[in-house]
């Protein structure tokens, strides 16, 4: 459906996005996350046709729309876009905003379509209003309806929730995911909020410095990060130093772990092991203990910062009623599904 092959984008000779390859099947939702300035919005605009690619190619439904030689203008791509500032037209009513992209279509078809879309986004009675009479969340829904009206091949969303209140975001994200799945729309969303990405996406791409660090499902991204950057950027966790022993084993201050996959590591190599807060289970009956160095109450859970006997610190997510005081020693047990190792530089 959407396919990017080694795409690069440059502004005045300065490459801001390079060597990006990814693809989405019909109805899949992809998210691009990364720190600001990583090139994720540029990539989105390249898919829409607002930026030219200087290498590689972008294809939609099997047709190349962008490569280094030629760019299909945005109006011929059938790409819907929801903008960060919504970009709704202030001189048109909600209904006329939504039907703006429905050209060469009879009035009655337009009216029916607008009605359906308003119903879909949950604003059935607001067609005659003007944009400044709507709240931020309502504007967001109108922007979505307008982008969906011409039944685009792919829908692009550029930080669509960034101007909304936090409470509104989660609900809207879930709603929009339902709408997109219902219509079987392929979509790409850019966000800097990984929770938003987890809530929306089938596939997530982590970008840094113009490169795609990893393109994977949310589960894989969290549990099998491909690089130190991804491990650090996605979720919480600490990197615990360790040493490779013989026979695929790694020694750390939390004990010895078994590697499941054959790696190129040699015995004696220094490595870091990724330990997520949910890898460490609080267990009062465990003989291994650690001291509470800091704690953050999270409602249903408490996030403990624990100091090991070796002096290293790890995090532990414990159920909320296990409320321990600072300085107390509590029992912990390791529950590691995936061993993630990064060789350490000298």
């Amino acid at each position: 459906m959407l396919n990017l092959q080694q795409v690069a984008v440059a502004y005045s000779g300065n490459t801001v996005v390079k060597d990006i390859s990814l693809s989405l099947a019909k109805g899949q939702i992809g998210c691009l996350v990364g720190p600001s300035g990583c090139g994720k919005t540029t990539l989105l605009r390249a898919i829409a046709g607002f930026e030219a690619v200087c290498a590689g190619s972008i294809s939609l439904q099997g047709n190349i729309v962008s490569n280094a030689e030629q760019q299909l203008p945005p109006e011929l791509r059938q790409v819907g876009m929801v903008f960060q500032d919504f970009a709704l037209f202030p001189h048109l009513s909600v209904a006329n905003n939504i039907s703006f992209g429905l050209r060469h279509v009879s009035k009655s078809v337009k009216a029916t379509k607008v009605k359906q879309l308003l119903q879909l986004v949950g604003l059935p009675d607001l067609g005659q209003r003007y944009i400044h009479q709507l709240s931020g969340g309502q504007q967001q829904r109108v922007a979505l309806a307008r982008a969906l009206a011409p039944e685009p091949n792919v829908l692009l969303l550029d930080e669509p929730f960034s101007s909304l209140d936090t409470e509104l975001r989660e609900g809207l994200a879930r709603e929009i995911r339902q709408i997109l799945q219902q219509l079987q729309i392929t979509a790409v969303m850019v966000t800097h909020d990984q929770n938003e990405a987890f809530a929306m996406a089938d596939m997530i791409g982590v970008m840094a410095q113009g490169r795609l660090q990893q393109w994977a499902s949310p589960y894989e991204l969290y549990h099998k990060p491909a690089s130190r950057f991804v491990a650090d950027f996605i979720g919480r966790g600490v990197l615990l130093p360790g040493t490779v022993l013989a026979a695929q084993q790694v020694q750390t201050s939390l004990g010895i772990f078994q590697q499941r996959y054959v790696s190129s590591l040699q015995p004696g190599d220094k490595v870091d092991v990724l330990i997520r807060p949910d890898d460490i289970v609080h267990d009062d009956s465990s003989s291994v203990t650690a001291q509470v160095a800091d704690k953050a109450f999270r409602g249903s859970h408490i996030l403990y910062q624990l100091k090991l006997d070796s002096g290293e610190q790890v995090q532990c997510l414990a159920l909320s009623h296990h409320n321990h005081a600072m300085g107390e020693h509590i029992g912990i047990r390791l529950d590691l599904d995936h061993l993630v190792l990064f060789p350490r530089d000298h």
């Binding site: 059938q78 970009a87 037209f89 992209g101 307008r146 011409p150």
Partner: peptide, 17 residues
């Protein structure tokens, strides 16, 4: 200034030359 560049983009992506 009130016509933000994103409005131009929005119209283009909705099929307008």
């Amino acid at each position: 200034e009130r016509i933000k560049p994103s409005m131009d983009n929005a119209a283009r992506s909705l099929g307008y030359k």
